[in-house]
Simulated assay, not measured.
Amino acid sequence: MPKSIASEDIAESTLVTRRGTFRAVAFRDGAEHLALVHGNPAPGTDVLVRVHSECMTGDLFGSTRCECGEQLDAALETIVAEGSGILIYLRGHEGRGIGLVAKIRTHILQDEGLDTVDSATSLGFPVDVRDYAPAARVLRHLGVRSVRLMSNNPDKIAALEDHGIRVAARVPLLAQPSADNIRYLTAKRDKLGHDLPQLENFAGK
């Protein structure tokens, strides 16, 4: 039987934000994570979901090196526009799981010409060590078994399905490329298999 979240490791309250009102579901599963539930996602339906990896530099400080902050904003806006959905914010995923200090060290190498993948592996770090099991567990806790996943990452789809969550559809979440993030996005497409068709017509590359 899949592991569930113990009652002492979860807390819920109402969270009013500038975008709207959410049910905030904080849960401890390794790290402490947060699910934001908007509206009333109906059990048995394909719920609109974003599983978002923590990125302090992008999400909080608006770094233009990545598209993480833009994706977070777009996902929340899409959920509110639809009227219901869930955003799961997974902590401990900084730098695809290598941590904040290591990620900042990779930035130095990226400024010297390496891409987001090679800068990590050259320092001896794995390409991606993120664990999506906590997202699957909180979805089950919320009664969700099937999702429309806002993502460009096929590995995230496979990970959720491996943990028992059906991905009925993938909803693209495409950020506009810029001179600051084009190398990062290109590496994600070419080396990590992300589906990023907007890169084809980028005039600045």
Rank of each mutant, 00 (worst) to 15 (best):
I108C: 00
S84K: 00
T106L: 03
G164M: 05
A158Y: 02
P126A: 14
E12L: 12
Q198M: 15
K191Q: 15
K156V: 11
E94T: 07
L192M: 15
V47S: 01
V80L: 01
Q110C: 03
E8Y: 08
G69M: 01
D115S: 04
G113L: 11
G85L: 01
I108D: 06
T106F: 08
P134R: 04
A35D: 01
E82T: 14
K3S: 14
V51T: 04
P197M: 09
T21N: 06
D195M: 13
R170N: 03
F125I: 05
V80R: 04
E67T: 06
P126R: 09
A169M: 04
A168G: 10
E161G: 10
P41H: 08
H33P: 05
I79F: 11
P172W: 10
I165H: 09
F125Y: 15
R50P: 04
T21F: 07
S178Q: 08
L15P: 02
R91Q: 13
A75C: 09
V101G: 02
V144P: 00
V25I: 14
A136G: 07
G85N: 00
V171H: 00
R148P: 00
P126E: 15
I104S: 13
M150G: 10
A159G: 01
R50W: 07
T78E: 14
A26D: 12
Q198V: 15
V167S: 08
A158S: 12
E161Q: 14
P134W: 05
D195C: 08
G99W: 13
E8D: 14
G124K: 11
A135S: 14
K103F: 08
H141S: 06
F27P: 05
G113V: 12
A169W: 00
E77D: 15
V16I: 14
R91M: 11
A136I: 06
Q198Y: 12
C55A: 07
A11E: 08
Q176K: 12
L36W: 13
N40V: 10
L160G: 02
G113C: 07
R148F: 11
H194N: 03
L72D: 01
H52W: 05
V138Q: 06
A74M: 13
S122C: 02
D162I: 03
L72E: 13
D59A: 03
A135I: 13
A42D: 08
T186G: 04
K191Y: 11
D9A: 13
E94N: 05
A175M: 06
F125Q: 01
G44A: 05
T106I: 10
P197C: 02
A11F: 10
A6C: 00
A35F: 05
Y89W: 14
R105S: 07
A179D: 12
K191C: 11
S84F: 04
T121D: 03
G83W: 05
R183D: 15
D46R: 13
H93Y: 03
A26Y: 07
H52P: 01
V47P: 02
G85S: 03
L123T: 00
G124Q: 12
A120K: 15
T17H: 10
C55I: 11
Y184G: 09
G143T: 08
L142G: 00
M1Q: 05
A75I: 09
M1S: 13
T21A: 11
G69I: 06
N40C: 06
E161N: 05
A11V: 13
E200P: 02
T45P: 00
F202S: 04
R189E: 04
L123H: 01
K3F: 11
L173N: 10
S84Y: 01
